[in-house]
Simulated assay, not measured.
Amino acid sequence: MKVTIHYCTQCQWLLRAGWYAQELLSTFGESLEQVALAPGHGGHFEVVITLDAQDTSEVLWERKRDGGFPDIKELKRRVRDRLDPERDLGHIDR
């Protein structure tokens, strides 16, 4: 599975996107094939997970749709639910 974080360069959201990527890699490590940062514009912020080799993807978080930026706990839960639903995220699940 791959995660792509689309972020707005005009809004200077690179540090935020990079932090999300770092947190996902710290938690899921090699269970994720890749976490990519994809620059864009127009206030766009979206986290997309690609589920398989056929590039089936799902939007996990979209800033306008979901009301701002995700809490890291919620983002990790959403990734875990697609990657390995049985996985315990420790204090995040409590």
Rank of each mutant, 00 (worst) to 15 (best):
K2C: 02
V3K: 00
T4S: 15
I5F: 12
I5D: 06
I5T: 12
C8S: 13
Q12W: 10
L14H: 14
L14I: 11
L15F: 11
R16I: 08
R16M: 08
R16H: 07
R16S: 04
G18F: 14
Y20P: 00
Y20K: 09
A21S: 14
Q22A: 13
L24T: 00
L25M: 15
L25E: 09
L25S: 09
S26R: 08
S26C: 05
S26K: 03
S26Y: 04
F28D: 12
G29P: 01
E30Y: 13
E30K: 14
S31D: 15
L32H: 05
L32E: 02
L32W: 02
E33H: 14
E33T: 14
Q34C: 10
V35W: 04
A36P: 00
L37W: 07
L37T: 07
A38T: 11
G40K: 03
H41E: 12
H44G: 04
H44W: 09
F45H: 07
V47E: 01
V47R: 02
V48M: 02
I49A: 10
T50M: 00
L51I: 11
L51R: 14
D52M: 05
Q54M: 10
Q54A: 12
T56A: 12
E58I: 15
V59R: 10
V59D: 01
W61N: 13
K64M: 15
K64H: 11
G67D: 02
G68T: 01
F69S: 11
P70H: 11
P70C: 11
E74M: 14
L75F: 05
L75S: 03
K76W: 00
K76Y: 03
R78A: 13
V79F: 01
V79K: 02
R80D: 00
R80M: 00
R80F: 00
R82H: 14
L83C: 04
D84H: 13
E86I: 08
E86A: 15
R87P: 06
D88R: 15
L89D: 04
G90K: 06
H91Y: 05
H91P: 04
D93W: 08
D93K: 05
D93I: 06
